[in-house]
Design a protein around this nucleic acid. Structure first.
Lengths: 327, 327
DNA sequence: TCAAAAGTGTTATCCTTACACCCATGT
DNA sequence: ACATGGGTGTAAGGATAACACTTTTGA
C-alpha cells in the first residue's frame, strides 16, 4: 500500500512519578553511555512480543526497575529525537513515545524497590518550583537571557509571523513566563522548556555523550539523556493539568492519608502553595474522600483525621478534579 | 544500543475539521481498497524526507487534498492498529499517529479546495449529537445492548478488578454514558467509542476490506477504514476539551463573524445547545473578541454586529477558553 | 507554656444561571 | 403586523478567596 520505508525504531520512555516527603520524585536510571547523566527507563517497542505499546512499557519497566506500575498514560510521540544527535550520527531514526506513570511508595524505602534512583523532578526543571516563592533563578539568569534572545529572534522573522497565526518568540515568552501582568501558568511546563531549548539556554546530552554548549554560564537545571528532559516536562505539564479535572492524585497517595498530606502532595506537583481551608472544604464538599474514623500522629501537632479516596466518585462524576485556581 | 527491531511503519493520520453551515465536518478520502468506505488523509512517516512528523503530515495532506493546514495538534499514537487486521495478515506492523487539524472554509465552496469529501462527523458517531435533545439511538439500541454486555463482562472478571484500581466494564459504562444520575460528559467521546468497540457493537472495516460482524442489526454510525474512526473519536474528545481552556474555536471561524455564528460553531462541536445570553456575556467579558463596527445581514432578522478574534488574548491569558458548563 | 498543626466560622466578592423584556430588520 | 434573531438588565444562588479564631497534641 505504501512505498518502502526506512528503518524506524520506536522507543518507549516512562516518566514514573511518586511523591516522597512532599517532593515529586522521578525514577531515573544511569544513562547508557554516560554514567554521570540520568535517563528515564526506556526500551524499544517490539510488536510481535508486545501486544500493545503500553504492555511493552510495563514489561521492561518491571525488568529494569522491578517496580510494578499502576496508572499509566501516554503523553506524546516525538519524531525528532534526532535533534539531539550530531549530524554525522549513523544511528537509525528513533521515534520516542513518552508515558506518564504514577505510583505510591510505602515509606521512604523506595530505593530498594527499584533498580534506579528517585530524583526530585525540580532538580531538572528548578524554575517550576514556586513553593518557596518566585524562584530567584528566573530573574537572575533565565529572563534576561531569554528576553534578549526573543527580541532578536522576533526581529529577524517579523514578516513571517504576520498571517500564519503563529506567535512570535517574544509573544511566546510573554505567555509562557507570565510577563507584563500575564499570570504564571503552572501547566505551561513544556512551552517553557521548549523556549529555553530554542534559545540554547539548556545543555542536553547528545547521543555520543557530549554536551552541547550553552549561551550562559550557570546551567539551568540538570540535563538528561537524549530528549528525556523534554519528556519529563511533558509529564509535568500533563500531570498538573490532569489533576484539575480527574482525581488522579490518589494514585500517588497511600490508601489512608490526612488532608494535609493530600494538600502537600498536590502542592508538590503544582509547585506552589494552596490555601489550606479552601482546599479542605473543596475536597470534602466534592466527596472525593471519606473519613476512616482513625487518626494519625505522623505529622506532629494535633492528631489528624485519616481519610481514604472514594473510588465511586469516578463513576458518579468522572470529570471532577481539585480546583487549585490558576492565577 | 538496542537489539535489532522488526520492521515498523509509522502512519500519520489527520482528522481535519471545518465547520460548514453549523455542522462539524471532517475531511475524508476514499478508502484505498474499498471505495465505499471513508478514510482519513494519511501517509507514512519518512524520516530522511520529513524533518518532523508534523511536517510530513502537512506535506502529504497538501498533496492529497490540496488544502493548506493552519492549526495542527498531535493526538495519540496507537500501537495496535493491527487489532483490525485479520490474524493471517502479513502486513508489517503499523503504528498510527493521529493528528487534529483545524481549518476554515471561505463559503460552502469547500469541495473544490480539497481532493476529498467533507462529511458531518456525527455521521460516524451519531450518539454524540445532543443538539436536538437526547439521541433516540441511545435508549433504543445502544444502552440495552451495552448494559447487557457490561453486566456479563463484569461478572466474568469480577475478582480481577478488585485491587488493580481499574474500573469494571459496568462502572465504565455508567461513567461514560451518564447512567444513574451521572451527567453526560461531552468529552468522553473516546471512552464511549472504546466501550462500543469492546462490546462488538461497531462494525469496522479491516484491512482486507471485509466488515466484522456486530451483535446488533442496525449499524451504529458509519464505519471508517482501519482505526480511523477511533482517531476521529480522539479528535472530537480533544477538541471539545481544548475549547474549554484555549481559544481555538477561532481557527474554525472566518476572520469576521457574528456572535451567533460563533455560538453555533461551538454548539456544533460540543453537540449541545448553550445558553445564548450567558455565552455572549462570557465571550465579551473575557475580551476574546472585539467589535469591528460593521454589521452583517447574513443571518436574517436584525443585523448583527461583526466581531473579530483578539489574538492578543493568547499572550495575556493563554489558558482562557469558552466556559460551556459540563453537566 | 509554647510551637505546630488540626479544625471551625464568617464575610465579601465573583461567577453562573436563569428569566424577562425591548430593538431592528425582512417579508 | 409579525417572525426572526440581536441585544440589555436584573436578581437569586453558588462557588471562591481571604481573614480571624479555637482546639489538641508533643516537646
Amino acid at each position: 500500500m505504501t512505498a518502502s520505508s526506512p528503518a524506524i525504531e520506536i522507543g518507549l520512555n516512562a516518566a514514573i512519578v511518586a511523591v516522597m516527603d512532599y517532593q515529586p520524585m522521578i525514577l531515573c536510571i544511569p544513562g547508557p553511555e554516560q554514567p554521570c547523566s540520568d535517563a528515564l527507563p526506556s526500551g524499544p517497542f517490539d510488536p510481535p512480543a508486545h501486544r500493545t505499546m503500553e504492555l511493552g512499557l510495563r514489561g521492561f519497566v518491571e525488568e529494569q526497575t522491578s517496580l510494578k506500575l499502576g496508572y499509566i498514560e501516554q503523553l506524546y510521540t516525538f519524531g525528532d529525537r534526532g535533534r539531539h544527535q550530531s549530524p554525522t550520527d549513523p544511528l537509525p531514526h528513533m521515534v520516542s513515545v513518552g508515558y506518564l506513570a504514577l505510583t505510591q511508595l510505602q515509606d521512604s524505602t523506595g530505593e530498594k524497590f527499584s533498580g534506579g534512583k528517585w530524583k526530585n523532578w525540580y532538580h531538572f526543571l528548578p524554575w517550576e518550583d514556586w513553593r518557596g516563592g518566585r524562584p530567584a533563578l528566573l530573574d537572575e539568569a533565565i529572563l534576561p537571557a531569554l528576553t534578549k534572545w526573543a527580541e532578536a529572534s522576533t526581529a529577524k522573522s517579523q514578516q513571517h509571523n504576520l498571517r500564519t497565526g503563529a506567535l512570535s518568540p517574544d509573544a511566546r515568552v510573554h505567555m509562557a513566563f507570565g510577563l507584563d501582568g500575564a499570570p504564571w501558568e503552572d501547566e505551561l511546563v513544556l512551552e517553557r522548556y521548549e523556549l529555553l531549548y530554542s534559545a540554547r539556554l539548556l545543555e542536553e546530552v547528545v547521543s555520543d555523550g557530549h554536551v552541547k554548549q550553552t549561551n550562559i554560564e550557570c546551567p539551568l537545571g540538570v540535563s538528561m539523556m537524549y530528549d528525556h528532559r523534554r519528556i519529563l516536562a511533558t509529564a509535568m505539564a500533563r500531570l498538573r493539568s490532569k489533576l484539575r479535572y480527574r482525581p488522579v492524585v490518589f494514585e500517588l497517595m497511600a490508601s489512608e492519608f490526612t488532608l494535609l498530606e493530600l494538600q502537600q502532595t498536590v502542592e508538590s506537583i503544582f509547585g506552589r502553595a494552596v490555601h489550606k481551608q479552601n482546599f479542605r472544604r473543596t475536597v470534602e464538599k466534592a466527596k472525593l474522600v471519606e473519613a476512616t474514623g482513625a487518626t494519625s500522629l505522623r505529622t506532629g501537632g494535633r492528631p489528624a483525621a485519616l481519610f481514604r479516596f472514594r473510588r465511586e466518585i469516578v463513576e458518579e462524576r468522572p470529570m471532577l478534579g481539585l480546583r487549585v485556581g490558576r492565577g
